[in-house]
Design a protein around this nucleic acid. Structure first.
Lengths: 188, 188, 188, 188
DNA sequence: GATGAATGAGGGTTCATTCAT
DNA sequence: CATGAATGAACCCTCATTCAT
């Protein structure tokens, strides 16, 4: 069965393809894991990205490396969001809600590899940014003195997981309920 | 593959082995999934239970059937606990904390098969028992009127998952924090 | 999950069940193999017959024994049919056509165990009855002198197999064509 | 089959091994199915070909794909044979006799998947080539007007199956008998 | 470097067979 | 002697990973 001539077997585009491939792999990973959950074949990511298996392994030697890279993008986004002086805790939660779905499989992977240095480092970055927001919120009197960073980290994790778990149609409602609960629990 | 001489090739103990096998399988399932998560080989359950693969499949035709059976035991325990007139919401949460660890993988499995009739039925039994407790708590003025059954079910799920996710050493602390948050959030 | 009381787990009816079971097994075997082909699980026969696995093995220690028993019934039927002085070859073919479908899986099994004494014996009985019919047909001048028993046995086997292979809707047509061919080939 | 000691645990020979593997698999399939019939383990083909399981599945996603590929080779051979202006029906039968043995299991597989597009297509190619031969034979007056393509296709199938079924020692005799019968049946 | 085929270990499932009751 | 659960070997198939080009 010879290939039809107009579908060349994907030329080797050489080293220049590197950065583009990396980006394509990250995007593909989000899609694949969002669709098929944490059990998705690793090779499906390469396929979806339109990239050879070998290249996937070159960029990300294993699942954790890939998950960490995805997670890194999320944390960077949250950091940017938490930077402005007037960023509220509610904004942070909004961003987490938005990220939750495509990232849930990576939450699984990273929490099951807490000892991995990269993962640990990302956790610290996340904690640090939450810390800043909490300090500001507390100073502004928008949350009670009983609320500490750990509480917010905990709630953020539970929220993300629960959203990922919920049926698509129920997600808005879940987010609403959690926010309402948190609002009361964190009130001064 | 030489067997150790004192382990004969496992005699067929006949049908009387049935109920014992079933119990052994449920116990083994809790252990195996608690240790290895929801991706654990199904066959590991049979191995751990000291039971043939075929018997595992006879008792539980698939993963969901097994997960549902484990879950059923949990729900039955919670029902017994919620029955007395003076059962408090706090007791329920205590029981959930106690169950969380060995059951978390089953929460994964069951939430990913919500359409399964048995799973659906168990969910309804759980909701019903929560409903009774919530009604009593509200009548007793121990929780606010803004709290409904759905809130409690949601929090219970998040709590169980978070506990399962946490490192063993951190679990007590996680439980403490969640209880504190819930206490404030649910207060009248 | 306790059984509903009106479906007792099939009482042991004792030795009297023996002959009935044997008959039920033969009937079930025809059905099962006709539906599912030669790859059908042996246990399906017991299930279909409403009989325990053990009883199946008691009556028929293996697949061949079962196939031979089915085949025996077929041969006996053909013998009865070939006995009358005025039995024609065409009648024999009609009977084979009628038997072909439910028996085809057994033809597979028996031809793959020609060395089995029972199978061999049945083959000889079949050959013998064909021999008698051929002798009469030849004496009556209805078939040519060039036709011998072996030819008829060969054609009978091919016909049965081909019928079993054909799609249900095409069987009548296949039978018609083969009969027409044979008629010409065997004509004096 | 003891390996010569210098055969290391099978190196990955890279993509160049592809076409060779495919050919080895087809050859192995003929051998394995000829020896063990249509119930032969699919994996035995890979083993016999000295090829990994995965490669077998890459080349032929399932049994039918493999059977169709084998069958394709047969049909191509028959087409080549039927092409010359002076090709006789007898030549076709000779070729079928020669192919019958290694192909019979594939006849089983393909006839049990008539709806498969590839299989259907091969059937049509076979019918087409028979059609051409029949037309020529009829024009030359070598077969009667009562013989149509369908008759020949039918006989070819029966012949191949019967040959595969026969004991090796009896095959020549079976072929001789069938040819004699067909000769009479098809004569003008 | 990128590519994608090759490899084979392992997990899922079925079923033939045994045997306690 | 019937029953049907228990057993485990064997097959199916899917990936994770390697590596020649």
């Amino acid at each position: 069965m010879s290939r039809s001539p107009e579908v060349p077997p994907k030329r080797n585009r050489g080293p220049v393809a590197g950065p583009g491939n990396r980006r394509a792999l990250l995007a593909a990973a989000r899609e694949v894991y969002a669709e098929s959950g944490p059990g998705a074949p690793f090779s499906a990511v390469a396929r979806r990205a339109g990239v050879g298996q070998g290249s996937l392994y070159r960029h990300f030697p294993d699942r954790i490396a890939l998950a960490a890279a995805v997670f890194e993008e999320n944390v960077a986004e949250l950091e940017a969001l938490a930077a402005p002086e007037d960023a509220h805790l509610a904004d942070l939660f909004d961003a987490i809600v938005a990220q939750a779905l495509p990232s849930s499989a990576f939450i699984e992977l990273t929490t099951s590899h807490r000892q991995d240095p990269t993962v640990r480092h990302l956790g610290e970055r996340f904690r640090a940014l939450v810390d800043r927001v909490v300090a500001r919120e507390r100073a502004a009197g928008r949350i009670g003195a009983h609320v500490d960073t750990e509480d917010v980290v905990l709630v953020a994790g539970m929220l993300a997981t629960e959203l990922a778990r919920a049926e698509p149609a129920a997600r808005t409602e879940v987010a609403r309920r959690v926010r309402a609960l948190v609002h009361r629990a964190f009130a001064p």
